[in-house]
Amino acid sequence: MARYRGPVEKLERRLGVSLALKGERRLAGKSALEKRPYAPGQHGQRKAKVSEYGLQLREKQKAKFMYGVSEKQFRRLFAEAARREGNTGALLISLLEQRLDNVVYRMGFASTRRFARQLVTHGHILVNGKRVDIPSYRVRAGEKIEIVEKSKENPQIVRAIELTNQTGMVAWVDVEKDKKYGIFTRIPEREEVIIPVEERYIVELYSK
């Protein structure tokens, strides 16, 4: 299954939760989900009973679409989390948080993960001084993430950094906003990652 490229606001309405896919529009309270908090389509306002499988699938879709990964990538990450010792669901979230595009987003250099992915693929990001254009690159604790010199005045990047004054910064990154670089200081604990996903349902789904 390919990565989702359709209308993201319809996707959020269908899943009934904000997935941080619309950046500044979401922060301004102008997202379609706030205006129409029900599923799209003719029968969107009907309350349908959701099966156990439906709940499990919905949680997987939330995580997959939020982090912008394909079905194949998601399965690989889950398989890796399942092989490790510890809580599989928590490990899965940790692996997703270590993706380079997500770290760029967490550092406030992009207002959405989708834009962060574009910055990475278009060569605007350095990791420890070297250009890395692979969004799935796994960032390790202590690595330095930096905007390339020629892109530091990009209006979208500048605006995204300004928005962090409103949204705040997560505890596991240390960012120098003026110099547009940051350090991924550590892998976050699951309880620190505030996302609308109940990963236990994902574990149940893949454990069948």
Results as ranks from 00 to 15, higher is better:
129 G>P: 14
22 K>Y: 00
145 I>L: 12
48 A>F: 07
39 A>S: 10
15 L>R: 00
184 F>Y: 15
46 R>Y: 06
70 S>Y: 05
68 G>Q: 12
126 L>C: 02
127 V>A: 00
69 V>Q: 14
74 F>R: 04
132 V>P: 09
80 E>V: 06
204 E>R: 07
180 K>I: 03
5 R>F: 10
150 K>M: 05
101 D>R: 14
24 E>F: 04
78 F>Q: 08
171 A>V: 03
90 A>R: 10
4 Y>R: 07
44 G>E: 02
192 E>C: 02
104 V>K: 14
44 G>Q: 09
38 Y>F: 13
30 K>C: 01
149 E>S: 11
185 T>S: 14
29 G>M: 05
17 V>W: 02
11 L>C: 02
113 R>H: 15
139 V>P: 08
205 L>Y: 05
95 L>N: 04
129 G>W: 15
146 E>T: 15
45 Q>F: 12
62 K>R: 15
188 P>G: 04
133 D>T: 13
195 I>R: 09
200 R>A: 07
172 W>T: 01
86 G>S: 05
152 K>R: 08
110 A>G: 08
106 R>E: 13
64 K>E: 15
35 K>Q: 12
82 A>I: 10
16 G>A: 09
139 V>H: 06
202 I>E: 04
32 A>V: 11
14 R>Q: 11
184 F>L: 14
152 K>G: 08
15 L>C: 03
87 N>L: 03
105 Y>N: 11
97 E>Q: 06
96 L>C: 13
152 K>Q: 04
154 N>E: 08
14 R>H: 01
134 I>L: 15
117 R>Q: 04
179 K>L: 07
75 R>E: 13
198 E>N: 10
22 K>E: 06
117 R>N: 01
106 R>K: 14
51 S>R: 03
114 R>F: 12
32 A>P: 01
47 K>Y: 01
188 P>K: 13
185 T>H: 00
23 G>C: 08
196 P>N: 02
156 Q>V: 06
45 Q>E: 05
186 R>M: 12
90 A>G: 10
185 T>C: 01
7 P>C: 13
39 A>D: 03
159 R>L: 05
67 Y>C: 07
99 R>V: 04
166 Q>I: 13
124 H>M: 04
183 I>C: 08
41 G>D: 06
72 K>T: 05
206 Y>M: 01
138 R>A: 02
58 R>I: 05
204 E>S: 05
1 M>Y: 09
31 S>E: 11
184 F>I: 07
208 K>H: 13
50 V>I: 08
200 R>V: 06
73 Q>A: 05
117 R>W: 03
143 E>C: 05
100 L>N: 11
164 T>A: 10
165 N>I: 07
11 L>H: 06
52 E>L: 10
108 G>R: 06
41 G>Y: 03
122 H>M: 13
130 K>L: 15
77 L>K: 09
22 K>M: 13
18 S>C: 10
84 R>W: 00
98 Q>W: 02
56 Q>F: 02
166 Q>M: 13
43 H>E: 05
199 E>R: 03
201 Y>Q: 09
101 D>F: 08
123 G>I: 03
71 E>H: 04
